[in-house]
Structures are given as C-alpha cells and as structure tokens.
Design a binder for these strands. Structure first.
Lengths: 370, 370
DNA sequence: CCCTTTAATGCAACCGATTGCAATGCTTTA
DNA sequence: TAAAGCATTGCAATCGGTTGCATTAAAGGG
C-alpha cells in the first residue's frame, strides 16, 4: 500500500505532499492542523500552539512545524475559528441601493477600514423595501455578523426588529438615514446646514418661490433637510408655502412618483422658480424630467440637489449639487463599529458625527441672466 | 436558587424564556439546540431531528420542540453548519470597482440569483491593482467561499494564482474580463460585435479617421473590442493606422493616463475625426476632457464609447454609448456558478455566453450637420 | 540517589449542529 | 410466553481549531 492509496479518494490535501494532486473532480479542501500533526507525528495541540508561537513549544519543533505548514501552504480554517471564538470577523452593510454613487462611495470607505482590520464586509441592498430590509436583517444576523452598518430604507417606519437586535447586543452604527430611538453611534452629513446653504444660495440669486422635493417624510434625512430649507426661508422672512413641498415615498426609485410631483409643481398657479432636491436619485430623475420637458435651467427653474456622482458636472446645464463626504462617512462608520465590536466593556457614550457637505455651484442654479 | 441565578451571568439566551433580558452589556448570543434540549429535557439529537422533520421523531415531541424553537426564535448557527457541511453558502465577487455602474449592475444581477438560492455574496474590488487582487484572492479563499465570480484587474497578466485555485477545485466563473487559459464558464458581452457596429455607425456617418482608446492591452475585452474595430475598418476598405490606437493601462482609473492619450490623439498631424472609447471609465474621462478643451462633439470629433450609466443621456451632447446587459450578465454568471457548486460530479462542458450589447446612438456621434 | 522542578508535549473538552448506531420500551406474532 | 418487530430517543463521533490540565522525561538540588 503506497502513500496515495492510503488516503480516502475524496479528500485531497490530506495525505499529499505540498504538490497539488487535486483537480476538478475533487472538492476544494485545504490542509488542516490534523494533517500537519499526522505528517510530523505530533499532536494537534502542539501544532496549534507552535503556529501561534506559544512559549510552551521548543524552538526546534516550532521551526519544524512552521516550515512544514508553509510548505503545504496551510491556512487556519476561519469557519472553525468563528465557531470557537464566537465571532465571524465580518460586518454587514445594508444600504438602499449599491448602484447609487453615494452609497458605493460610503461602501468604499467602509471597506478600506474593515479590510485594514482583517474584517470582511457583506454588502446588501434593501431597494427601499421594508420586506427586503426585514429579510436581509434576518439573514444577516442569522449569518452571524459581528456588527451592522445601516442606512434604513425609505419605506421603513417600524424599527422594533432593529431595536430588538440592538438590545440583544448586536453592535450597530447608523449612517445617513438614522433611527433616533436607537441609542448608538451615528454618522451623518450636516444635512440641515447643507440645505440651508443651498437654499440661501438660491435666495441670493433672487429666487422667490423655492420648491423642494424630499424623500419619504419618515426619514431622518428628510426632516433635517427640510429644517435647513425652512431655516433659510425664515431668515429671509419668507413664509413657507406647503404646496411647494413635495415628497417621494420611495426615494425616487420609482420614476412615476417623481414625475407626479414635478408635474404638480409645474402646474401650480404660482409656479416655483427654483427646486431643491433632497435626495440623490430624486435629483437626477427630476433633472431628466425637466430636460425632457424642455424647461430651461436655470432661467425657468433654478435647480440644486443632493448628488454624489462626478457625472453631474458633465450635464447640460452643469448641475449644482450638495455633495456628501461619502468616503469619510464610510470610514468613520466602520471605525466606530469596530470600536463597538472590539470594546471589552459596554459602550455608553455614543457619538453623533455630522460631517460637512460640499455645495458645488454650477450652471443649473446661477441666475445671473435673470 | 431561582430560575435566573442558575445560569452563568455572561450567557444570555441560555436560561431565559422568550422575553429578552439581554442588553448592551452582553454579547449578542443566539439560542442553540442545546438550550432547547435542556429546556425540554431531551437530547440534542432529538431536537435536531425534530427540527429537520425526521420521521424518527414522534409528532408530539416534534410539535413541542418546534413550538419552543419558534417561541425563543431559534435559528441554526450557520457557522456550525458550515464547519460540518464544508461549505459556507457564500460566494465571492471580485470586480475592479464597485462604483462603476457596469459592475454595480452586474452585482445586482449576481445578488438576485444568489439570494434566491440562499447564498451570501461577498463583494470586493481590486481597484485595478494586481497586489490588491492577489491579497483579496488569498483572503477570499482563506475565508472559505464556495465559489468565485471574477472580472480580472487591468494590471494582471499572471494568472498562476487563479489557475492554482481552479485546479484545486474552487468553482470559478469569469465575466467581462476573462482568462482564456482557464477552462471554466465565462459570461461576456459580444464585444467584437458591439464595437463593430459602433464603428460601422461612425463610418456610415462619414468619419474617415476613427481613433480608439482601449483599456490595458492584456485584457480579453481589449482584444475583442479592437478586433471589432478592425473588422469594421476592413469592411470599409480602410487601412488601420496604429497611431490612432491608444491604450490606458489602468483602465482610465488614473486621470492622467487618459489625458495623455487624448492629447496625443489631438496633436497628431492628421487628427482623428472620431473616437471609440473601449471602457466605461475611459469614456467618461475622455468626454470630460474633450468638453474641458471646448472640442465640439460631434462636429469636431464624433464620440461613442462603452458606458452603462443612465446619466450619459443627460450629458451635453447626449452621449452615444455601447451599453452592456450588465444585470443579465450577473444573473447568468451567478447561475452558472451555482450550477458548478451544486453539481455532484465534475463539470467538463463549460459554456461561453456572449450577450448582445445595445448600441444607443445619441447626439455625440451623429454628424448629420457635417 | 532520590525528590523536586521545569520544559515539552499530549489528552480531552469545547464551540453548534448532524447522523450512524445503539438502546429502550412497547406491540405484535408465532 | 418468548422472540421479533417497530417506534422513539440517546450516545458519541465528527467538522477544525483552541486551551486547561495532565503526563512525561530530563535536569537540578539536597
């Protein structure tokens, strides 16, 4: 009986030397500590300790074991480690849509930090749907993530599920769309100030009837952004006309809802002369609709809105935007989450980081010609 | 000694009823089969079998167990399952950049299929760097993914690592940028035909000197796309001028490399009158550069290029694009990967799916006025 | 020379679930 | 009435790694 017939036909790395004798017939199976122990005539505990450089193991055996491990390209099985250590070294991220530039930039930020700390990122998207969000939360937590970074979906207004998870001890960090009732770290843009400055800019450009199209009224960002709008109007002693404030319950993900509110605004007896668009998707959809209707920006309507895509500078007219520091938000959220995960004792001092947005004025809102 | 002091202080779900008595002090720990067994005075095997509806367990105990499990909201620990079953129910996805619309659409497609089949998707990005790609591959495989969907980075031309993984039995599906030498499923756009038709369109519009800016010459997509360009020129009996063919080794991720080749093209003695842009990022960068230089499109230079963003229709001039069926690519790639993962026997019949791109002609390439 | 100390290694339990193989007790049949 | 059959349930090994607690043997001390 030679060296190879000893081994079971299905197992691959087991009795083999460092040379690959595997092929597509067999499952991808890595070498284990047991293989090393068997090959070297030692116990698994000795091997384990040697690989972790324990003082209890003699230098000679350590070297022997480490050399052999390197030779067969041994990697500890993370699944086994997770089971033992009760952590998965992975964090979940839930956003409404990956394809949204803002979110993909945030994800980049999260990834950069997570990666640096040996954490894995599981990215999911709710597509603004409550059911999907519930399903994903269930899924993510049953998949045992160590923590969660989330921007809640537009539709959601019942947070009992999330609250329960939090109470059970799952570390959570909110960003962008936060849940006030849950007491944990939050990273947001200074939404109030961003919209305040954007509205101010329009007012300085002689706009008299400034309309807004907001996301779902439930969302924290909607409330904050509307507050900024109102603050600016108040400052200019203009009264607030509720007919100029419109909402898109699905955050603009459904084209028709945007078309509907734009039409409503355009058919008002006293038409608006400006629009502040309070969500990324709503901004591009509205811009597209206005263009299709051959409405001149900024002459007919001055437009400024939230958006994080570089492409908006290529639009015609080049679009004025409120741009959020998305990458930094991701970094900060990830760092705060890792702090939570790795803190030995209960954290009670929660931070609310509000990062400054950037207002980029381009053609679509500058009415020097009016 | 009452019901609660019996339990260890650190463990949470253990001796508790369905009501949460956990809080932020304690780690998030779910109920286990052992808890159910203990609570009901049964063995773990009975509980396990009951939950999986085994015929061996009496209906009475089954009901008792299932009711209690539902009551305490029991979920099997996926980590333990993974260890036992040697699979993680998660697949890795490696793309060059998540923020690229094409890739985020592909990811959407992958997710939709993976999700439906109970698989988890771990998304990673190489940012076109070989080192990052190697690191991620190492990381992903050490994290025990069940399979991999990958579009290789522009920089990479050594595939031994990937080849080894494949030979060891890791199921891999390539999409977009494929590796010819590795024999497995591949999902691509019909790149040759797409560029052929785009070039043809320019030729029909009387363009005489059509330049191209391609991605890294190593990439499969570059070769296929250039072949389409050449096929069209040949058909129109035009000879191929190598000075009109430029490459961006980093796929346009570095702005300067695009600026450099655009400048080279614009300072040629015999200037090009059209540009075909063979990669998404290169398309938008070039468009932006041309706009900045106040070059009229299509009058001075007709432009068409690969891009999957909806935004291109809002550009001025509206940009003509070759759009790839990204979502479907993702779906198909994921389905093929799941087939590989779940097939009992070795797969030897590998598919090469080539999906038709869509050519969307807009203002930037239509020279009726010339 | 025997006893204690110390260094080096192995045994076995554990993490949470699954599963082949008993073991138990009850009913049925010859 | 004993043997066989069957329905239920439990024991224990397993997945791959970690770790507290032996165990062993060699070295040092009295």
């Amino acid at each position: 009986m030679d060296l190879f017939t000893q081994s079971l036909p299905v197992s691959c790395a087991l009795s083999l030397s460092s040379h690959e004798r595997c092929n597509a017939y067999m499952k991808f199976e890595a070498a284990t500590i047991k293989d090393i122990a068997k090959a070297l005539g030692l116990s698994t505990s000795t091997v384990s300790r040697a690989l972790r450089d324990s003082y209890e193991i003699s230098e000679a055996t350590k070297k022997k074991i480490k050399d052999y491990a390197a030779q067969i390209n041994y990697r500890p099985n993370p699944v086994a480690l997770s089971l033992k250590e009760k952590r998965t070294l992975s964090i979940g991220v839930l956003v409404s849509e990956i394809a949204n530039t803002f979110f993909s930039q945030v994800i980049n930020g999260i990834e950069s930090i997570a990666y640096k700390n040996g954490y894995n990122v599981i990215i999911t998207q709710s597509k603004e749907s409550v059911e999907r969000e519930e399903m994903i939360l269930d899924y993510l937590t049953s998949r045992s993530i160590d923590g969660l970074i989330i921007s809640v979906s537009a539709e959601t207004n019942d947070f009992t599920n999330l609250k329960q998870l939090h109470e059970k001890g799952l570390p959570i960090v909110f960003f962008d769309r936060v849940v006030e009732e849950i007491n944990t770290h939050k990273v947001v843009t200074d939404n109030l100030d961003g919209v305040y400055r954007a509205t101010q800019h329009l007012l300085q450009n002689q706009c008299k009837r400034i309309s807004v199209i907001a996301n779902n009224a439930n969302l924290s960002i909607t409330k904050e952004r509307l507050a900024g709008y109102k603050k600016a109007l108040n400052e200019y002693k203009m009264n607030i006309d509720e007919s100029l404030i419109k909402y898109c319950d699905h955050g603009g993900l459904i084209v028709e809802e945007v078309e509907k509110v734009v039409d409503e605004l355009l058919t008002l007896k006293k038409k608006p002369d400006a629009m502040v668009l309070l969500a990324d998707k709503i901004t591009t959809e509205t811009f597209s609709i206005l263009k299709k209707k051959n409405i001149n920006m900024p002459q007919d309507i001055a437009v400024i809105g939230f958006n994080n895509s570089k492409y908006t500078s290529l639009f015609s007219p080049a679009l004025s935007v409120i741009s959020q520091p998305a990458f930094e938000m991701g970094e900060q959220a990830a760092q705060l989450l890792l702090n939570l995960i790795e803190s030995k004792r209960a954290v009670t001092d929660f931070k609310l980081e509000a990062l400054a947005p950037e207002i980029i004025i381009r053609e679509s809102s500058q009415i020097s010609s009016r």
